[in-house]
Amino acid sequence: MTPKNTICLWFDKEAHEAARFYAATFPDSKVTAVHEAPGDYPSGKKGDVLTVEFTVVGIPCLGLNGGPAIKHNEAFSFQIATDNQEETDRYWNAIVGNGGKESECGWCKDRWGLSWQITPRALTDALAAGGSEATRAFNAMMTMSKIDVAAIEAARRG
Rank of each mutant, 00 (worst) to 15 (best):
G131L: 14
N93V: 04
D48R: 00
C105W: 11
E53D: 14
L123S: 01
V56D: 03
K30C: 13
Q117C: 14
W107A: 02
A24I: 00
C105H: 03
E74V: 10
K146W: 13
I152H: 05
H16P: 01
G58C: 06
A33C: 08
G158F: 05
A75V: 06
E74I: 12
P68I: 01
D28W: 07
D12N: 12
G58I: 07
R90T: 12
I152F: 08
E86N: 09
T82A: 04
T2Y: 03
A128L: 06
F76M: 12
A137E: 06
D12T: 08
R20H: 09
G113S: 14
A15R: 10
V34C: 12
G97V: 06
I152V: 05
A140N: 09
D40V: 00
R136D: 15
V149D: 09
G131E: 10
L50V: 04
Y22C: 03
K71L: 02
A150D: 13
K46D: 00
D110K: 13
E102R: 10
S77N: 12
H72S: 14
A37M: 06
T25W: 01
C8E: 05
Y41G: 02
S115N: 15
A24V: 04
A134N: 13
I7G: 00
L64H: 01
S29R: 05
K45L: 09
T143Y: 10
T135E: 15
T135R: 15
P42V: 03
W107R: 05
A126D: 12
A94P: 02
A33I: 07
E14Y: 03
P27N: 04
G106K: 00
S103T: 02
P27M: 11
D125M: 10
N139K: 15
C105K: 01
E104G: 11
V56E: 04
L64A: 10
R136M: 07
A24T: 08
A94M: 04
A18E: 11
K13C: 09
F11P: 00
W112D: 05
T2A: 11
